[in-house]
């Protein structure tokens, strides 16, 4: 275990006194590497909390620049950041919160050509993307690379999340076989999203990542947590790994393919 400086002991004191984390848990957090894909609604709270927690190395992938319409919910970005690459804007806030951490920025969108290499350098992955092609691709890459990850989705007043430990717990494709037909499911940009919902779900994802790193409690394996903030009903649906899963069952997948291709093939 590392020697904690006095500053670190004080900074992380509420973790260190916390049963199930403690100084060993904080040490693990500081040794961990987490990749956040998407520095938007979900990625913002995840990045802020993981930086504050002292996660040793955090990667941020996002090819976009900050837009005025992002600021209603993407709380890591400020008005002065409009036009700035999201990964750079995010990095600045994270380092301001915690100068001890290392933040790697990747100004790009994920695709089949770059995702396996991106996830390979990290212990845990956060899906904070806003489209099904990316969500399914992240699932496939994490299964192929055997990387645990947190799936998250939000819409209007609701959200859903599950945590996946490839080959041990059900993957996203065990639950949802393949992406829905294009435009069949509304998106945040077409149907709206209450800004604070991104915070509700993103903080659950950050919590799952930290639980995984320190080994505390039960991650959301084999269950989908969904909530409707209008009624504040939270529901957990349990399931098992699907032995016939297209991605993680039986034959499974052998290589990463972009979902335009996968969807077209499935129609033949």
């Amino acid at each position: 275990m590392r020697d904690f400086s006095d500053e670190e002991l004080e900074r992380y004191s509420r973790h260190i006194i916390l049963e199930d984390v403690g100084i060993e848990g904080q040490d693990k957090i500081m040794d961990s590497k987490i990749l956040i894909i998407g520095a938007g609604g979900l990625g913002s709270p995840v990045a802020l909390y993981l930086a504050a927690a002292g996660v040793g190395e955090i990667g941020i992938v996002d090819g976009d620049v900050v837009d005025l319409s992002n600021l209603q919910r993407q709380v890591i970005h400020a008005t002065k950041d409009i036009g700035v690459p999201k990964c750079e804007s995010a990095r600045a806030k994270m380092i301001a919160i915690n100068p001890h951490i290392k933040v790697n920025t990747y100004k790009k969108f994920v695709d089949a050509s770059n995702l396996l290499e991106l996830v390979s350098g990290y212990d845990f992955i956060i899906d904070g993307t806003d489209n099904f092609s990316a969500k399914f691709l992240i699932n496939d890459a994490c299964v192929l690379a055997n990387k645990p990850y947190s799936h998250g989705g939000i819409l209007r007043f609701g959200g859903q999340t599950m945590t996946i430990k490839p080959n041990e717990s059900a993957c996203y494709a065990c639950v949802f076989d393949r992406p829905p037909p294009k435009d069949a499911v509304p998106t945040c940009s077409s149907a709206g999203i209450l800004g604070a919902i991104a915070g509700m779900l993103g903080t659950i994802q950050a919590t799952e990542a930290l639980k995984y790193i320190v080994g505390a409690g039960q991650p959301l394996y084999n269950s989908l947590l969904s909530f409707d903030a209008k009624t504040m009903n939270f529901r957990k649906i349990n399931f098992k790994k699907n032995p016939k899963c297209r991605v993680c069952g039986g034959e499974g997948i052998k290589e990463l393919k972009d979902y335009e291709a996968v969807v077209c093939e499935s129609k033949i």
């Binding site: 969500k135 819409l155 959200g159 499911v185």
Partner: peptide
């Protein structure tokens, strides 16, 4: 019976 709906937003 459970109906699980797609939710694809995040940004």
């Amino acid at each position: 019976i459970n109906f699980l709906y797609f939710m694809g937003g995040g940004a």
